[in-house]
């Protein structure tokens, strides 16, 4: 049975069909990648699924419940978490505090207890602090815990976002270009991390430009072009699909030619 079901999802921006009639599904522990050339609507699709944009058409069903147009904080309560392509870090907080903030749903309590630092409030803070440190270790940022988040490298911030998203203990995790701006070693680390998280039963929806990574870790691939789904299937089948090669790899080949000059 699928955990996340996307049905005929679509949205328009001022007459432009940004995304049209996209549907697919995710099973628990499955890694599904959404690929496509720049401007194909991948991030827009993510924003609709995660409640940032309200879709004009279609449905998002999470574990049997229709969650279409539900605000992000309610989706978070139902176990859907995400990272962002353009980083959304809490800049003025330390690395550790960013990860602790991800525990919001597990640590929130009465404002009164928080104001007076009652034992209950301190216990909640301490528990989320310990969990946050473990998560930072897991993404390789344990030693940077006390640093200001703004001082980290781009690749490290990407991993911090993953740690923050994992803090929610999600059932579905949406990762928007987690390896962008990372070097080969970092990419491989993220690669392992994603596979591990999926092995624990979390469904992962991935947007990523690193084709090697996508082909290596995905169970299933959805290809978008001009806002529409042009193909979906197993990595090997997608790699051979002529429409995909034309739309996506073709575009890359053209880009490569431009670079070669």
């Amino acid at each position: 049975m699928s955990l996340l079901q996307i049905e005929g999802l679509g949205i328009d921006f001022g007459g432009l069909r940004a995304v049209h009639d996209v549907g697919f599904s995710l099973k628990p522990g499955e890694i599904v990648s959404v690929i496509g050339p720049n401007g194909a609507g991948k991030t827009t699709l993510f924003n609709m699924i995660s409640g940032v944009y309200a879709p004009a058409r279609g449905r998002v069903v999470l574990d049997g419940e229709d969650v279409t147009r539900m605000p992000p904080h309610l989706l978070a309560r139902r176990g859907l978490s995400r990272t962002f392509q353009n980083l959304q870090i809490f800049q003025s907080m330390s690395v550790l505090e960013n990860a602790v903030a991800g525990h919001h749903l597990h640590e929130r309590g009465s404002v009164f207890a928080d104001l007076f630092a009652l034992p209950a409030a301190r216990r909640r803070s301490q528990a989320s602090g310990e969990s946050a440190r473990a998560l930072l270790d897991r993404v390789g940022l344990g030693r940077a815990a006390e640093q200001e988040a703004g001082s980290l490298s781009y690749g490290a911030l990407k991993r911090l976002e993953i740690a923050r998203a994992l803090a929610l203990k999600p059932r579905v995790l949406l990762l928007d270009e987690p390896a962008a701006g990372c070097n080969a070693v970092e990419t491989e680390e993220i690669d392992h991390l994603i596979a591990q998280v999926a092995a624990e039963g979390v469904s992962i929806l991935l947007v990523e430009h690193d084709m090697k990574m996508v082909m290596r870790i995905s169970n299933h691939i959805v290809v978008l072009d001009h806002g529409e789904k042009i193909a979906e299937g197993e990595p090997a089948a997608i790699a051979r699909n002529p429409r995909v090669i034309e739309a996506y790899l073709g575009a890359q080949a053209t880009e490569a030619k431009h670079v070669d000059g």
Binding site: A76, S81, R82, F84, F90, Q91, S92, M93, A101, A165
Partner: peptide, 13 residues
């Protein structure tokens, strides 16, 4: 958190 990034704060609940 909501001061730093409203959209990120919402996605953590």
């Amino acid at each position: 958190a909501l001061h730093g990034s409203e959209v990120a704060a919402r996605t953590v609940g």
